[in-house]
Design a protein around this nucleic acid. Structure first.
Ligand code: MN
Ligand code: MN
Ligand code: MN
Ligand code: MN
Lengths: 145, 145
DNA sequence: TAAATAAATTAGTCTTAACTAACTTTGCAT
DNA sequence: ATGCAAAGTTAGTTAAGACTAATTTATTTA
């Protein structure tokens, strides 16, 4: 039977993507991701994190041992890397437009969940071109009134 | 006292923005926006629309008379125009990147709710530059592998 | 004008994703 | 070894936003 999802719209909710992204980030930066750290990073309560971690375990995106810790599964890490990659590319792109870091962080955190593969590739290509054309970037700044 | 919202993050939810956007669109195209039309446009049930319309009335974004019809208030129309404008600019931008219409529609419908004013201005400036540099646009296409 | 159809509303339910408060487990210091 | 603080969990609540089914109002049509 044919697959329901023909390319667009990702499988995981924005919320799930944000959790996975932060978990991978924590694992990469300090070797592990504890509930308390995830809660701090996402600025939500520990109870909410416990809930979600149990759900992600049920969905096989990570393996979780109560009171102990968690590790991403193959599938979970793949999803996490995918969203982290979107985050990186979007951030680089907006940086080239001369935007403020706070603005970039805010907008990317929302936009990253709504960018399909073709759009991401196009933005990637545009970023490459922008990078090698300082003159164009300069004109952008002046065009901003 | 200082305002809570310092520029970023809009006042209305993505959902509210989508409703207002569609309502304005319907009013512009056929003169009025009925519950049944809004429901069809958003692909949700009429019951959901009735609920939201009553809420938007309570929030003074539109004036609603049961079983009759609705008109946007000043505030509602302003919000609607703002989101419609973001939608337009993003669409034009992605169009210049050579993306497929279906992809553009999908991505814009999500991204439009997460673009702050400075980012929108930057994308607007970039769009202007892209428009006058067909060579650059051509290179984008070939860069897409 | 009366019946039939279309549009709109209400009531009740569901899911997601957050919260607080209370409780349990773990790890560290004495 | 015990006791305390930090971390984690559970239970119960809330809000947004969707749904279906049943009902009511408005509009068409015969
Ligand atoms: Mn995000
Ligand atoms: Mn992110
Ligand atoms: Mn939208
Ligand atoms: Mn839109």
């Amino acid at each position: 039977m044919p697959v329901k999802n023909p390319g667009l719209k990702s499988a995981a909710s924005s919320t799930v993507e944000d959790y996975l992204e932060r978990i991978l980030e924590l694992i990469n930066s300090k070797g592990y991701a504890r509930v308390v750290d995830i809660a701090a990073a996402l600025e939500i309560s520990q109870a909410s994190v416990t809930n979600m971690v149990q759900r992600l375990d049920a969905e096989r995106l990570l393996k979780y041992e109560k009171y102990r810790g968690l590790v991403l599964t193959e599938a979970g890490e793949k999803l996490a890397r995918r969203i982290a990659h979107r985050h990186r590319l979007l951030t680089e792109f907006l940086k080239l437009l001369g935007l403020d870091d706070r603005v970039i962080c805010h907008d990317v955190e929302g936009m990253e969940h709504h960018i399909s593969v073709p759009t991401l590739r196009a933005i990637e290509a545009l970023t490459r071109q922008l990078r090698r054309r300082p003159a164009l970037r300069a004109q952008l700044e002046t065009a901003l009134v």
